[in-house]
Simulated scan of single mutants.
Amino acid sequence: MSLPTTPPDEPLDESGAPAPADAADPGEGAEGQHPHPKSRIRSFVVRAGRMGTGQIKALAELGPQFVIPFKPEPLDYERTFGRRAPVVFEIGFGMGGPTAQIARTLPDHDFIGCEVHEPGVGALLKLIGEQDIPNIRIFQHDAVEVLDAMIAPGSLAGVHIYFPDPWHKKRHNKRRLVQSPFIAKLVKHLAPGGYLHLATDWEPYAQQMLEVLSADPDLVNTSTRADGYADKPDYRPLTKFEHRGLKLGHGVWDLVFKRKA
């Protein structure tokens, strides 16, 4: 399964051009995974992007093994991973660095990541090959359609949504992924006791996330802090973007809620 190590692919901005040196890493979270402006919930908007040679090679060599074709039928986890293990679903893994690290930190869990941005899919496949990570599978498809068609209700041990687009302008807030109907959909796919772990670096969005999750009758907040936010779980690595932000005094907010048993 291992791929020869190649030099890191050049970071790209959303247009596909090389990103400036001080730009946020496009792969350090759920960037590009936002709801569509139309009424139907979607987990993304399409972004342009240029593929590096390492990503192209990984897609060709490892894609058939680790990328799951979208089919409107329930996914057999045991057949997919070759074992029985708790399954965690991630929406928008960007370039996949944190996803790969979490999968290595939690080898007794299996991870399904959804990302429509092809360079991100190629980048995660490259990491899977270089680091020999067996417990990740990928959908290059809208996460909402995957949930509706292929993820059985009550079957997930957890859901991760890290740094989704905050849609900063007030008139665009309705485009944010974390809204009550979408959270209700996620909760239905969680097993009793399963968790939702969200993270954002935009405080107004963190406040909205906390309000939406707290209002769901089937969820309970695991935090014991007065502000309702969670301490960063050990399994979630700090991203390069977070390191830069923390040095500048910016905040990051984690939220961990569980489905009631």
Rank of each mutant, 00 (worst) to 15 (best):
V252D: 01
L219Q: 01
C114R: 02
A24L: 09
P237A: 11
L12A: 05
A19K: 01
L62Y: 05
A152N: 14
D25L: 05
L198F: 14
G194Y: 04
H160E: 11
K169Y: 14
A21S: 05
L59A: 10
S2G: 05
D254Y: 09
A157D: 14
I91R: 02
R171D: 13
R176D: 11
G120L: 03
P233A: 11
D142T: 06
V88H: 11
E211F: 01
G194C: 06
F241S: 15
D218T: 10
F111R: 03
E211I: 02
M209K: 08
M1Y: 00
A100I: 12
K188T: 11
G92P: 02
Q207F: 04
E14K: 07
A184M: 08
H34S: 11
A149R: 04
M1F: 00
R40L: 08
F163K: 00
S39F: 12
V88N: 07
Y235I: 06
N135T: 12
M1W: 00
G27D: 06
E203P: 07
A60S: 15
A103S: 12
Q207P: 00
K170Y: 12
A17V: 00
Q55E: 14
I183E: 07
R236A: 10
I102D: 00
L196Y: 04
G245Y: 14
F70Q: 04
P217D: 14
D132A: 14
P35C: 04
F44S: 04
P26L: 13
K260V: 13
E203F: 05
E73L: 04
R236Y: 12
K247L: 14
T6L: 13
A199I: 07
V252C: 13
A261N: 06
P192L: 12
L59K: 06
G113Q: 05
R244T: 13
P119R: 02
S2Y: 07
I138N: 04
I128K: 02
R225A: 15
P237I: 10
D218P: 02
P119C: 08
Q55G: 15
A48K: 04
K174W: 00
A85P: 06
L12M: 09
P86G: 11
A85S: 15
G194S: 08
H36P: 01
I41Y: 08
V252R: 08
G158V: 12
D201R: 03
D227P: 02
T80S: 14
G16W: 01
S180A: 15
G96I: 06
M1H: 00
G113H: 02
R171W: 11
F70P: 01
D227C: 04
A261L: 08
V87G: 01
S223E: 08
D231L: 13
L210N: 03
L177R: 02
R40T: 15
A48N: 10
A191R: 13
A23M: 07
S214D: 15
L124N: 01
A19Q: 07
V144A: 08
I128E: 01
W202H: 11
R104G: 10
P8R: 04
G154T: 03
L59M: 11
S223K: 03
I161C: 13
V212K: 00
D76E: 10
Q101K: 12
V187S: 02
L147F: 10
G63Y: 12
D108P: 00
D218W: 09
V121G: 00
G129Q: 01
H117N: 10
L177W: 01
G29V: 04
A17D: 10
L75F: 07
V116W: 00
P8G: 08
A230W: 01
R176P: 03
